[in-house]
Amino acid sequence: MHEMSLMASMLEIIEEQARLDGFHQVTRVTLEIGRLAGVDPEAMRFAFDVGTQDSVAEGAELLIEETEGWARCPACGQEAPVLVFYEPCAACGQMPQEIVAGRTMTILSLDVE
């Protein structure tokens, strides 16, 4: 359940932004999570509900946009979506492939007032 500590990092970023930007209430957080980031969106939602209590984001909606994992085959250069780290290249069967997307977790935007 490392989503709790990711949540704590998220709250730190939000509160830092609140000081810079002068907002007092966040109504929606849009978060992008790659499918290969090792994060469970359901656990993240739970952590969000618990972790935002008594903060500027209390009661805010959490919108999670999941992005696909992508891999590039070093042998034939094909790029294609993958569900796990260890999928062979669909075109030529080569392993390992280089993961080029889907490992990040990013706060995209905040709706604030």
């Binding site: 970023i13 990040t104 977790m105 995209l108 935007s109 905040l110 709706d111």
Partner: peptide, 10 residues
């Protein structure tokens, strides 16, 4: 109500 763009890695 307004939207603040962040693009910050957790």
């Amino acid at each position: 109500l307004r939207r603040v763009s962040l693009e910050r890695n957790l």
